[in-house]
Each structure stands twice: as structure tokens, then as C-alpha cells.
């Protein structure tokens, strides 16, 4: 069995002009060029994309899922950041 596994890459596909690249999945490839080619063969066999990004999975920095409560605490209880908080002006046109 091969001992040196190819690195893992995350694949992002832009499905149409004007839309963001969206995470589609991951794959193994020996280098960036092969990763892009493999991503085309694996994730765009039916015209799903007009643009591809690949990035090495190990290069992605993530927030810590165990600290997600405290990390994302700030907006909680601040519903005055949403338009729906403002009830007094309900029924006023074009507001």
C-alpha cells in the first residue's frame, strides 16, 4: 500500500456568474494542478460550475467547535440589529 497519501483538498464551485463559490466536497491529489483537474472531473461532470477553487484542507483555519457558544455569543440578545425588532413603525408604508 502506498505510504505517502496525497494531501486532501477542499473544492469550491461557482455554479454561475454572479454567485459565490460554494464548498462542494474534498478530494486527494498530489499537487494543486492535479487537484483542479480532479475537481473538474469529480464535481462538474454535469455543467455544475464555471469556476473552481481548491485549497489544501490543512491550510484552512477554523473556529473551535467546542467554544462555539462563547465565540458566537456577542450577537445573542441583540435583536435590535434586525429590522423585525422595530414594531412601533409597523404598517407605515415604504419603511
Amino acid at each position: 500500500m502506498s505510504s505517502n497519501t496525497w494531501p486532501l483538498w477542499e473544492v469550491f464551485v461557482r455554479s454561475a456568474r454572479g454567485l459565490s463559490h460554494v464548498h462542494a466536497g474534498s478530494l486527494h491529489a498530489p499537487d494543486a494542478e492535479m487537484a483542479v483537474r480532479n475537481a473538474r472531473d469529480l464535481y462538474t461532470r454535469r455543467n455544475e460550475g464555471i469556476s473552481l477553487w481548491v485549497v489544501r484542507s490543512e491550510d484552512i483555519i477554523t473556529s473551535d467547535p467546542d467554544e462555539k457558544d462563547s465565540f458566537f455569543e456577542s450577537p445573542q440578545g441583540k435583536d435590535y440589529r434586525h429590522a423585525t425588532y422595530y414594531k412601533a413603525s409597523e404598517g407605515v408604508k415604504h419603511l
Partner: peptide, 16 residues
């Protein structure tokens, strides 16, 4: 397919 994997890995190392 071993030679393909080895060649691709060798190329990747050289490029790196």
C-alpha cells in the same frame, strides 16, 4: 496504477 501515483507524487515533489 502504482506507476501513475508514483509519477504524480514525484512531479509534485519536484514542483514543490
Amino acid at each position: 496504477g502504482a506507476w501513475v501515483r508514483e509519477a504524480a507524487a514525484a512531479y509534485a515533489r519536484k514542483y514543490e
